[in-house]
Nucleic acid binder design. Structure first.
Length: 311
DNA sequence: AAACCATTCAACCGCAAAACA
DNA sequence: TTGTTTTGCGGTTGAATGGTT
């Protein structure tokens, strides 16, 4: 007997999510907070398994997600971090705010891998992830371990900072892993959800645009049908008034600044160590020839750690 | 215009770790 | 301590789309 499926396959819908489903999910998370995914399908009536709901939220609907158009800046970071951490996309994503691990993974597989192949003259005698598995050095494993420890420390530090600060900041902090914060998607309180919801609306606004074009009648029906549905659509459409054809980092931040400038200030504060890491990444990318390990990595991390200690 | 091929990316699957009872 | 449930992660797939012949 094989492993049982993660959820009943009978009556479970698969494939692309519809805007209607997105609205239901976003609305539910706004009310209940992210977490307890097991309960989401039954509580929302969505014919999706819990995994699918979580994935849709974390990779697409979650607020603050920046999609497509990777900058050269981000590209270099990914290449560098991949070199250090391997295919640990979640860890890499923690260094790139507003990017999901899935997005980074896709970008790596579709763009960067080829790019590096070309740069190395097609000489890829390494494994699929660019590492030679048989010759991976002990030092590299140590560095990985050190990085993990460092990340854990920072996560703890941030958690302690949050405890001290306004509890309302928690959802925002949990949503934006400004620096190596492990995803903290455990049950997020519904409080302060207006900020997160606004960004969620931005994320699905583009879908809604097409959707309303296709079925303007349906949108109208939603507005005028049940009170709850009407509320959902009214909320969505109210956000639709702003221009977010391209949900860039800047636009997300500025939109949130308008809603809650304090949160942005806090975010900037916690970004200090991240900027240092970035500096290291780019300094090193420029200084070091391809494939060379940065010797001063741990030094700089230690320096960053000192900065974190200031909290 | 149609067929074919390549690319992209959202979503699924299976496993492992974490959380819980 | 152990067994079960839930969550998170990385690899993979396949539909959609765009480009080429």
């Amino acid at each position: 007997m094989g492993r049982p499926p993660c959820c009943d396959t009978v009556g479970v819908k698969k494939g692309p999510w519809t805007p209607e489903e997105d609205i239901i999910l976003v609305s539910y998370i706004q009310e209940q907070g992210a977490g307890n995914w097991r309960a989401v399908p039954s509580n929302t009536g969505l014919l999706r398994c819990s995994k699918s709901c979580r994935l849709r939220w974390t990779n697409y609907l979650r607020p603050g997600i920046k999609r497509g158009n990777f900058t050269e800046h981000e590209e270099k970071m990914i290449i560098h971090l991949q070199e250090l951490l391997g295919n640990r996309w979640a860890a890499i994503a923690s260094y790139l705010p507003h990017r999901t691990d899935n997005d980074i993974k896709n970008y790596w597989n579709t763009h960067l891998k080829k790019k590096l192949n070309k740069m190395k003259g097609g000489d890829m005698s390494t494994t699929h992830d660019g590492h030679n598995s048989s010759t991976i050095s002990k030092g590299q494993w140590e560095k990985r371990l050190q990085t993990d420890i460092h990340m854990a420390k920072q996560a703890l530090c941030e958690a302690l900072c949050i405890d001290k600060s306004d509890p309302k900041m928690l959802p925002h902090s949990a949503t934006y892993p400004v620096i190596s914060t492990p995803p903290t998607t455990k049950t997020v309180p519904a409080a302060n959800s207006s900020t997160t919801y606004a960004s969620s609306a931005e994320n699905i606004a583009r879908l809604l645009e097409n959707w309303t074009k296709k079925s303007s009648n349906l949108a109208h029906n939603l507005l005028s049908s049940s009170p709850s549905e009407g509320t959902i659509c009214t909320r969505m459409l109210s956000f639709n008034s702003s221009n977010y054809s391209d949900v860039s980092h800047e636009s997300v931040i500025s939109a949130e600044e308008q809603l809650d400038p304090q949160t942005h200030d806090d975010q900037q504060e916690t970004q200090i160590p991240f900027s240092m890491l970035e500096k290291w990444l780019f300094d090193d990318a420029i200084a070091a020839p391809q494939g060379q390990e940065p010797d001063h990595f741990m030094e700089d991390l230690a320096l960053a750690e000192t900065t974190v200690d200031l909290f």
